[in-house]
């Protein structure tokens, strides 16, 4: 058996909003075929952290980052790196489902490819179908690919957004509380999908739901005030945490 490979090596990330120092040097590794869950109280910097991984943080006016994130051996913050290429490799699903307005289901799923310059209709159709299948949405929408994406239910929209991300086929998929706006059944579907994605992708997911983290992740990192307090196998972190603060958080004594 080959050693699992650390696809993401995140080192000493500091992030600011203006003068506000939000991330204070957390470091983490994320391996191939792994689901890494990020938990922690509200405002501790989980969203900021995953937004540094696809360089979305710097899009906020006045925001700043320092540190290194190696993706497959290459620092995504190197001066010569093109953010567009980073984001093609590191996809993201957001908290609120956000299909593109005025675009059909087909156009939504193919948006990444089309707007990166891929034109061939047959190729697009093929990828749209396979992505929708991977996102377990194909059967529900295959007869209405020309209908607007915003016309779907919230849960379907979120799977559409997942399909849209999968269409670009990024090895890493970031998810920021992808189920927090969904009903329990849609949530269960997305969780199931995440577990299937593990076979081909690395998933980094922020969640407030500790049962969810326990169900779907291999590793969990506990964040507090912009730092990683503990990072371990999920089974160990939830049953036998080594830090007192982790224990207090997972037993619900604060946060």
């Amino acid at each position: 058996m080959s050693e699992p490979k650390a696809l993401l090596k995140i080192r000493d990330i500091n992030a600011w909003f203006g003068d506000k120092h939000v991330l204070k040097g957390p470091s983490l590794d994320a391996y191939e075929n792994e689901v890494l869950a990020l938990i922690g109280p509200s405002g501790c910097g989980k969203s900021t952290f995953i937004r540094t991984i696809n360089r979305l943080h710097e899009e906020v006016p006045g925001a700043r980052v320092s540190g290194t994130i190696e993706f497959d051996g290459e620092n995504i913050y190197d001066p010569g790196v093109d953010v567009v290429n980073v984001r093609k490799k590191i996809g993201m699903v957001f908290q609120k489902p956000n299909p593109f307005p005025g675009m059909s289901i087909f156009d939504n799923v193919s948006a990444g490819l089309r707007l990166q310059g891929i034109r061939r209709r047959s190729k697009l159709s093929e990828i749209v179908e396979s992505s929708l299948k991977k996102a377990a949405l194909w059967d529900e929408v295959k007869d209405q690919l020309n209908k607007p994406g915003v016309g779907l239910s919230g849960g379907q929209q979120q799977r559409l957004c997942l399909a849209r991300t999968l269409a670009v086929d990024p090895p890493v998929i970031l998810m920021d509380e992808p189920t927090s706006a969904l009903d329990p059944i849609s949530t269960a579907k997305i969780e199931e999908l995440i577990m299937e994605l593990k076979a081909d992708y690395t998933v980094v997911i922020v969640t407030h739901n500790m049962q969810q983290a326990a169900r779907i992740s291999n590793k969990t990192a506990f964040f507090l005030l912009g730092e990683v307090i503990e990072h371990d196998k999920t089974s160990r972190l939830f049953t036998n945490p080594s830090d007192k603060r982790t224990e207090e958080y997972i037993t619900g004594r604060f946060g």
């Binding site: 984001r87 093609k88 996809g91 993201m92 593109f100 307005p101 948006a111 707007l115």
Partner: peptide
């Protein structure tokens, strides 16, 4: 919505 576009590598 803009961020979703950027996040796709557009």
């Amino acid at each position: 919505i803009r961020e979703a576009g950027l996040a796709l590598g557009i």
